[in-house]
Simulated assay, not measured.
Amino acid sequence: MKTSPSISAMRGVTLAAIVALGAALSSQAFAQTAQSYPDRRITFVVPYAPGGATDVTARLLAQKLQESWKQTVTVENKPGAGGVIGNDFAAKAPGDGYTVLVAITQIIQAPSLMSKLPYDAFKDLAPVTQVAISPIVLVVPEAQPMKSVKELIDLAKASPGKYPYGTFGNATTSHLYGELLKKNTGIDMTHVPYRGAAPLLNDLLGNQVTAAFLDFTTAGPQLEAGKIRPLAVGGEKRKPKLPNVQTMAELGYPGFEAEGWVGVFVPAATPKDIVNKLSAELGRIIKSPEGTAGLQAVNLVPVGDSPESFEKSLRRDFDRWATVAKTAGVKGE
């Protein structure tokens, strides 16, 4: 005589079937979501005020993405706390691909500079693509006599405290580089922080500060005009638009290999298919003739890589900036 399956066994089979069906439906739903994405407005969040390199980059990408996907793409500026407010807003947004963060290097520098952040850049955000490198140039006003980094260091050593250096803010790349140079060479230069690169540039042009590590986007036009003089660039390689300007490492000053950049992120819960779709389209835009020209026009070096490649860069740069911050002794406000 056959024994009927027990009720518990039948329940086990039924539960397994439900779980399997749920997984299949979930997978199908994700695929459909990615296939139909986007079907409404996308918002690009910029954690800085309008007009800077990050904002200009976001608006270029938003315009081109809107043209290719035939969906409205808006740019929303959420400045404050050195980028933390905008970053936090994006990190806590729904993971549906409709809130996109356009951030800069600060997002992975901050953990080494601030005691507490309301988000974790690696856990709460997913990398989409590195848009471009933002080169940093060590510059001096035209009126200053020094023609090399060595001459700047020699003058600073000869007159401790006499030569102030400017930055575009406390605990920024500019400040980290400046304090690292002081630490590694033993010079005494007074730090003068500004509220952004534009006012720093104005005082450089007026010879109010002796030197500054300035982003190439801001410095470019005045370098071309001969109003400020480049002494060196940061990063591992020389820059295409400044081929004769050596890197700090080439000149014998290591530790300046980490660079500034502009990158795109989405909330961590965003389905991988959507992340890949957004990354592929932004990469295409960045590498297109119009995208490349637009970024180069503001002296950015286009990249447009995959999420996986960008994540590797993030982890490498996180370690690099942590080392720089520790060596330079810089802390955020």
Score class of each variant (00 low, 15 high):
Leu242Tyr: 03
Trp261Gln: 01
Val56Phe: 04
Ser36Asp: 14
Gly252Asn: 08
Ile107Leu: 10
Thr99Gln: 13
Gln246Gly: 02
Tyr119Ile: 05
Val149Arg: 09
Lys162His: 12
Ala29Val: 06
Ala23Gly: 01
Asp317Gly: 12
Pro127Glu: 14
Arg41Pro: 01
Gly82Lys: 15
Ala110Asn: 15
Val303Leu: 06
Ser148Trp: 03
Ala17Pro: 00
Ile286Cys: 05
Ala212Gln: 06
Val13Cys: 04
Lys312Met: 00
Ala143Thr: 13
Ser4Cys: 10
Val102Cys: 13
Ala297Pro: 08
Thr210Phe: 11
Ala328Trp: 05
Ile274Ala: 01
Gln32Glu: 04
Met248Arg: 11
Pro267Asn: 12
Val192Leu: 11
Gly329Met: 06
Val266Ile: 12
Leu60Ser: 12
Ala219Arg: 04
Ile187Leu: 07
Ala81Ser: 10
Asp55Pro: 12
Leu251Thr: 03
Asn77Gln: 02
Ala219Trp: 00
Pro50Leu: 02
Pro193Trp: 02
Gln109Asn: 14
Tyr253His: 14
Pro193Thr: 05
Ala58Pro: 00
Gln66Lys: 00
Ala126Trp: 06
Phe213Ser: 01
Val264Glu: 01
Gly263Phe: 07
Ala62Val: 05
Lys2Ala: 01
Gly166Arg: 13
Lys272Asn: 09
Ala132Tyr: 11
Ile42Glu: 10
Ala24Glu: 07
Tyr177Arg: 15
Ala158Val: 02
Val262Cys: 06
Leu242Asn: 01
His175Lys: 03
His175Asn: 14
Ser313Pro: 03
Lys2Asp: 00
Val84Pro: 07
Ala53Tyr: 08
Met248Phe: 00
Pro111His: 02
Gly291Ser: 12
Ala126Glu: 05
Leu300Ser: 04
Gly332Lys: 13
Gly291Leu: 09
Glu142Ile: 03
Tyr48Trp: 06
Arg229Cys: 05
Asn202Gly: 06
Thr172Asp: 01
Asn276Phe: 08
Ser4Gly: 04
Tyr194His: 14
Tyr177Asn: 03
Leu214Val: 06
Leu242Phe: 05
Ser174Lys: 09
Pro221Val: 09
Pro243Gly: 14
Glu290Leu: 01
Ile286Phe: 05
Trp69Ala: 05
Pro141Cys: 00
Thr323Pro: 11
Ala53Asp: 08
Val102Asp: 08
Leu181Glu: 07
Ser4Ile: 03
Ala293Gln: 13
Val149Lys: 13
Met10Phe: 07
Pro193Lys: 15
Thr210Asp: 04
Ala20Thr: 11
Arg59Ala: 02
Val102Ser: 13
Pro127Trp: 14
Leu295Glu: 05
Val264Met: 15
Thr292Leu: 08
Val56Ile: 09
Val303Phe: 03
Thr72Glu: 10
Gln222Phe: 10
Thr99Lys: 03
Val324Ala: 04
Ile133Leu: 08
Gly283Thr: 12
Leu314Tyr: 11
Ala225Met: 07
Lys241Ser: 08
Gly226Lys: 14
Leu155His: 02
Thr173Glu: 12
Ser4Met: 11
Gly178Ala: 15
Glu151Pro: 13
Gly235Phe: 06
Asp124Lys: 13
Val301Lys: 10
Pro145Gln: 14
Gly86His: 10
Leu201Arg: 00
Asp39Val: 04
Ala121Met: 14
Ile136Leu: 06
Thr247Ile: 07
Val45Asp: 09
Ser27Ile: 09
Ser288Lys: 07
Gly283Tyr: 08
Gly206Trp: 00
Val75Arg: 00
Leu60Gln: 02
Gly329Gln: 10
Asn87Tyr: 03
Ala143Tyr: 04
Asn276Ile: 09
